[in-house]
Amino acid sequence: MPDYILTSEILNKASDILVNSLINAGVRTVLLIDSAGNILVNCGQESEDVDSISLAALAAANLGATSQMAKLIGEDDFSLLFHKGKTGNINFGRIGNDLILVTIFGEEVSLGLVRCRITDISESIRKIFEG
């Protein structure tokens, strides 16, 4: 498992992509984290209000636990992980080997659109961090 060295060039590239494709589509907050729970990129309107450090740690643990459950029932991993709330929803997606994209969004955006956009940008994000 690699350490990540982040330069402003890398961070700018990644947040440009995340803002253009997700935040501009109405997603509230996007967190790109690694599977140890460290935050690499944090963008969106509420990124100041959300306790992103805790969120990242719990998201990484949640995904880790889910993929262990998958293995217990003979699956490789579950491809979708999504929690629906009254006004806020949260979606988790894996990118490459060690990255997790956490998106938080409300009623105004559909899950389908969010998923679609994530699929579109996954490869470019992976390339930025994993080469």
Binding site: M1, P2, D3, Y4, I5, L6, T7, S8, L11, D34, S35, A36, G37, N38, I39, L40, D98
Partner: peptide, 15 residues
Amino acid sequence: MAIIDLSKREVHCKI
């Protein structure tokens, strides 16, 4: 898996 953020000059480690 440490993170070294050269732009913010931060090092993140997990203990």
